[in-house]
Amino acid sequence: MDEDVLTTLKILIIGESGVGKSSLLLRFTDDTFDPELAATIGVDFKVKTISVDGNKAKLAIWDTAGQERFRTLTPSYYRGAQGVILVYDVTRRDTFVKLDNWLNELETYCTRNDIVNMLVGNKIDKENREVDRNEGLKFARKHSMLFIEASAKTCDGVQCAFEELVEKIIQTPGLWESENQNKGVKLSHREEGHGGGACGGYCSVL
């Protein structure tokens, strides 16, 4: 619709049950959800347009809210994703430990290896922290992920997380360009979007 939208990006939110994935998503997408609408259109993701470095990108963010107990994540969920937000709860170590399983899934389903991953330590507003910031940072570094700590409750870092991710994706033109061409989406190409430039530096980007 928006002619000046550079591209549409598919972003996944994954992580253990109860880490606050949907809260994160909803905080970012301005708390709008209408089941009626969802049923009519038949979409299971939420869309938001975001502007980073003067580039507008439309994000289709996929979430499995409420279904974690079903073993339902399938390749189609992962297919074509350009960015993944891997969430854990800083107050529950088990959610951090299980990150390996999620990486296994990513490795299996995401055929390309230039997908941008971001690790988000959620719920930093809570006091009973079990996972230290440095641990998260280390894990992220080990697996070449962006890292940020956030609180969906206070909205701390939520916007930042998504912006950071998008920025990184846009800086990797091969990632989103080829995807879009494959899908036959017509792009209103501006100048090549790569080298988007300095990141804000407000997050720990690794």
Binding site: S22, S23, D31, F33, P35, D44, T64, A65, G66, Q67
Partner: peptide
């Protein structure tokens, strides 16, 4: 059933 759970979760979060 998962679909309904998602809807209800989203509603509750929103």
């Amino acid at each position: 059933l998962g679909k309904f759970l998602t809807d209800l979760k989203m509603l509750d979060t929103t």
